[in-house]
Simulated scan of single mutants.
Amino acid sequence: MCSGLTKSNYKELNTLYAKYKNQGLEILAFPCNQFGWQEPGSNEEINEAVCSTYKAEFPLFHKVEVNGKNAAPLYKFLKSKKSGMIVDEIKWNFAKFLVDRQGNVVERYAPVTSPLQIESEIQNLLESS
């Protein structure tokens, strides 16, 4: 959990969740250790770090694989609906998918995309459903 993206992403995800959770926003976090071994801990250790250090209140699921033959079915689905710029594989932790209330994958964002950069898209989805 030492990625340069960790602190800023959790901070901004917390901001969005606090602001929009009562309107129906859900943020689902899936730790993954496939990128530079940045999530080496157990599920309990990761949960403790995210909840205590970053004060995350949104659901944090067990660690999954997002690429390769053991990729979680959710990530197989997400990638099948919104491919990446060059390849379909997830490139790094904090790749983001925006999904509407009906389960349609609306957009895919690179790990370096700030969560606050997609706030207007989130607002639009919340208002339209």
Rank of each mutant, 00 (worst) to 15 (best):
K69S: 13
V106A: 08
L126P: 03
G68E: 02
K11E: 11
T6V: 09
C51D: 07
V50M: 11
G4I: 11
K96Y: 00
L5H: 12
N33M: 04
P73L: 11
G103H: 10
F97Y: 15
A71Y: 02
H62C: 13
F97P: 03
A72T: 05
F30K: 12
A71S: 13
Q123W: 00
G36E: 05
G103P: 00
A71E: 08
N124R: 12
N104W: 04
L25P: 11
D88A: 10
W37Y: 11
Q117G: 02
P31S: 05
G103M: 10
L5C: 07
P40K: 01
E39R: 05
Y54D: 13
Y54F: 15
D88T: 09
N70G: 14
S52E: 11
N33T: 06
I122N: 06
S128D: 12
A29N: 09
E26K: 15
L125N: 14
R108Y: 12
L60Y: 02
T6C: 15
K96Q: 01
Q117W: 08
E107A: 15
Y10V: 07
V112Y: 06
T53E: 15
L25H: 06
Q123H: 01
K91G: 13
Q123A: 03
S3Y: 06
K96T: 01
K55A: 15
K81W: 00
P115K: 03
C2I: 14
V106F: 01
N33F: 04
V66E: 05
T6H: 04
F35Y: 14
C51F: 08
A56C: 09
D100P: 00
E26I: 08
E12F: 06
N33H: 07
F77M: 15
A95Y: 05
P40G: 02
V112M: 09
N93W: 08
L60D: 06
N70F: 04
P40C: 01
K79F: 01
L60Q: 10
N70T: 09
T53C: 10
L25F: 05
G68K: 04
K55L: 13
F77A: 13
N47M: 12
Q102G: 14
Q123N: 10
V105I: 02
S120D: 14
K69C: 05
G41C: 03
G68Y: 00
N14M: 07
P115Y: 00
V66H: 01
L16D: 06
E121C: 00
